[in-house]
Design a protein around this nucleic acid. Sequence first.
DNA 1: CTGTTAGCGCATTCAC
DNA 2: GTGAATGCGCTAACAG
Lengths: 343, 343
Amino acid sequence: MASLEQLDGPRPATLSDVASSAGVSIPTASKALNGRPDVAERTRRRVLEAAERLSFAPNEVARNLAAGKTGTVGLLTSDLEGRFVLPILMGAEDALGAGQINVFLCDARGDAIREQHHLRALLSRRVDGIIVVGRQTDPRESLGQKLPVPVVYAYAPSDSLRDYSLTPDNEGAGRLAAEHLIATGRTRIAHISGDSTYQAAQDRVRGACAALLDAGLQPVGETLFSSWTEHWGRDATSLLLSRHPEVDAIICGSDQIARGAIDTLRDLGRRVPEDIAVIGFDNWEVLATNSRPELTSIDANLQNLGREAARAIFSALDTGGLDAGLHRLPTRLVIRGSTISRR
Amino acid sequence: MASLEQLDGPRPATLSDVASSAGVSIPTASKALNGRPDVAERTRRRVLEAAERLSFAPNEVARNLAAGKTGTVGLLTSDLEGRFVLPILMGAEDALGAGQINVFLCDARGDAIREQHHLRALLSRRVDGIIVVGRQTDPRESLGQKLPVPVVYAYAPSDSLRDYSLTPDNEGAGRLAAEHLIATGRTRIAHISGDSTYQAAQDRVRGACAALLDAGLQPVGETLFSSWTEHWGRDATSLLLSRHPEVDAIICGSDQIARGAIDTLRDLGRRVPEDIAVIGFDNWEVLATNSRPELTSIDANLQNLGREAARAIFSALDTGGLDAGLHRLPTRLVIRGSTISRR
DNA sequence: CTGTTAGCGCATTCAC
DNA sequence: GTGAATGCGCTAACAG
C-alpha cells in the first residue's frame, strides 16, 4: 500500500501523467486502470505500474462530470441536536459508505429557508439522492415530487403519500410495551406520556391501550401528558399514586420520564419492579443502564432505520423507482430490571 | 423565488441553454451571471432573465473541475457515537455552511483502515480541507504533514506538533471547578474522577489540585478513579463519605458521575448543596438540568470548538497557512443548584 | 488491441 | 463589450 505521504506532491498525478509515463495514450491508460477487457495484459501491467509509481488517484470531480453521476447523497437534517437524528445519520452514513458513496451533511437548524438553501446547494452539487431526516415522527412538508433525484424521508415522514417515508412503528411500540407488562402478570397499568402534541405520544398510547383491551384490561386512570422530562416523570408519578395507589405498572412515554418515575417511586417507598414495574421508550443507553434498577425500554432501531433509508436510495439509483408511501419499521423490546426482578 | 419544482425537467438547464436563449455566447453568459464588470448592462439583464426563465443553476461539479477547488471539506470522525463529537460537528457544519462550503461526513468507526479509505476518498473528491474529530482528548496519530490540503484536528489533538490541533483546556476546566467551590466557601474538597487512562481525567485533576494549592488547601483524600458512569459516582461517593465524612464538596469527573454522587448523597441524608456541593464536567443538559438539584457543571464549549476548526480551515484556505501546534480552548462554568442554594 | 476524436459544463485567456 | 479558442481530468464512441 502506498503511503499517504505519496499522495502528495506539487500537483497530484493525472491520468495524462500515467499515460505518458507508461508510454500509452490517455484512453488506453483509462481502460487499463478501470479493468476494461479490451487491453493487452502487458499494456495493463505497464499502466498499473506507472500509476503505482506516481501514486495516481483518479480525480473524482472530473470523473463525476464525465459520468453525470457523483456517488454522493445529501443528508438533510432539520436539527442535528435532536437526539434521534444521530443514530439515523450513523446508520445511513455506514450503509452508504460501504457502498462507496459519500455523504453531504446539511443541518437546516429547523429553518425552512435554510433548508431550501441547502437543498439547492445539494442539487447544484449533483447529489444522486437525498435523505431527509426529521426530528419528530410528525409528518413534515414534502419537498415536492418533481425533484430530479430520489428522496427518502426518515423518522419524520413526508406529508405526501406520493413520497417515500420511513418512520418507527410507534403504535406497535406502545403495544409491545403493554404486552410485555401483561405477560409479566401486571394488570393495573397506567400511562405517563410526554408532550401530547407529538404524534409519537399519541401513537404509543393508542397502541398500548389497544393491547390492554385485547387482554381484557382497562388502563388505570387517564393518560397523563405534559413534557418529555425527568421532572414531569416525578410529578406525574406522585399524582398517579395519590389518585390510583393500586397501580402495579407504569408505561412511560420516554426513558427520561421513566427515570423520574423510578426516582419518585423509590422516594415513596414503592419497590421497582416488585411493587410497580416501569417501562420506557427510546432505549437511551446512558439513561437506561444507569438507573436503579436498569430500565426496560422500547428501542426504535433508529440506526437500522438509517440503513434502510440508504438501502432505499440504492435501489432507487438502480431501478430508478421507489414504491411511495409511509413505511413503519418495527421496534424492539429491551428487557432490563425495571420490569422483571433479578433472581 | 423560483419554486423548486422548476429546478426539475428532463435535463437541468446548462449555461449553454441560457446563452442561446439570451442570444449571446457562453462566455458572455458566464461573465454576466458571475457579475463580472466587462459586460454591458443591457446584455447582463437579458442573460439574467434567461437564467431565471430556465431556472438555471450552475453545475457545481463542472465549476469545481474548472476551478480546481470544490468548496467542500471532509469531516473525518473516529466515532460518531461519542457524545462529544456531535456538538463539534454541529459547530463546524454551521460555520462552514455559512461560508457556502459543504461538508462530507465520514465516520471511521474507530477503525484505522476505514479511516485511510475515507481519507483517500476525500482527497480523490478534492476536498479543500479536512477536519479530524476524535472522541477523546488523548492525542491521536497524525495523518502526516504532506497532505495536499490543510488539516485541523479537533478535540483529539494530533500527536505531532507540526499539525494544527484544537482541544479543550481541561486543566483550566479543573481549575475553574475548584475555584468556584473555593469561592463559595468550600474548604474540604474531594475529587471523584473517571477512567484514569483518559488524559482528560488527569488534566482536570491536575488543574483542580493546582487551584486548591494556590488557595492554601489540600484535596480531601486521594482522587478516586474508575469509570465515567453513574454507578461509579454512587459507589465512589459511599466510599468517600465513609473515609472522609468531613468533606463539604465533591468535584466529579463527569456529569454522569455527579448524578450518581447526588443520588447517593440524598440516600445518605446529606443535603446538596447545603452540606455538600457537587460539580460535574461536560454540562450535558439532559443530565444536568434534570437532576435534583440541578447540576453545576463545566462546559467545554464544543460547538465553539467546531466553529473554530472551521475558521482555521477558512484562514488556511485564504492564507495557505496554519500556525501549527496544540491550541487549548477555554471552558466555561455553568452554575446551577448543586453548588449554590437558591434563596 | 490501440489511439484519435469528441464531449461532460463551466471559466479563463485572448483576440476582435 | 463580445465571442472564438483552450483547458480542467476523465470516459465513451468510434476508427485504425
